[in-house]
């Protein structure tokens, strides 16, 4: 009977871990392709990105110098506008510096990495650790720096989003 307890424990624990892994993996789905190919010109990444690239093209086209390219490629939809990684400027906050790097594939943001986060004191490290994934998810969803700051992490959020905006400007998005 103890064999049964052991087997049941192993099976159910494995199931619980698998579900956790799966849930955790869902937030990372977008990361997977760009982590594998930062150059991001493969057809595999272009296909899923197509709708969002098309959607973001009008807003991206307006303020930037990339207008001709964007206009030319808009009907094609699958053609790349901007690709690669862009590092934002360093934002200084009273709790330390914040700097982010974005990965862009075909005109859409596929990943945001925090290079520096507010780290003066253990509390702000922990606040940053909490805020950064939230901001990253929001930015990936909104495809812009137009997201709400995380409550309780105002300085981190402001620094994060301003560094992000400078990276977006460089990417011409």
């Amino acid at each position: 009977m103890r064999v049964r307890a052991l087997a049941a424990s192993i099976l159910s624990s494995a199931a619980v871990l698998a579900v956790g892994w799966q849930l955790g993996g869902q937030g990372q789905v977008q990361v997977a392709p760009d982590a594998a190919a930062p150059a991001a010109s493969a057809a595999t990444t272009a296909a899923p990105q197509a709708p969002s690239a098309a959607a973001s093209t009008p807003t991206a086209a307006a303020p930037t110098a990339a207008t001709p390219t964007a206009a030319a490629t808009a009907p094609v939809a699958a053609a790349p506008t901007a690709s690669g990684t862009f590092t934002g400027s360093v934002s200084r906050t009273r709790y330390g510096n914040v700097q982010v790097q974005i990965t862009v594939a075909n005109g859409s943001i596929t990943d945001v990495t925090a290079l520096q986060l507010t780290n003066d004191g253990g509390k702000s490290v922990s606040i940053s650790n909490r805020a950064a994934p939230v901001l990253r998810t929001e930015v990936l969803k909104a495809q812009s720096a137009n997201v709400q700051s995380v409550s309780g992490a105002t300085y981190t959020s402001e620094g994060y989003l301003s560094s992000l905006q400078s990276a977006l400007d460089q990417a011409g998005l």
Binding site: A5, A8, S12, S13, L17, G20, P133
Partner: peptide
């Protein structure tokens, strides 16, 4: 016995679901 082990697995899973890995 199973519940004890599942609770341990769940606490690891909390971190996995958060995207910790």
């Amino acid at each position: 016995v199973m519940l004890c082990w599942v609770s341990v697995a769940l606490s690891v899973s909390l971190w996995l679901a958060y995207g910790g890995a």
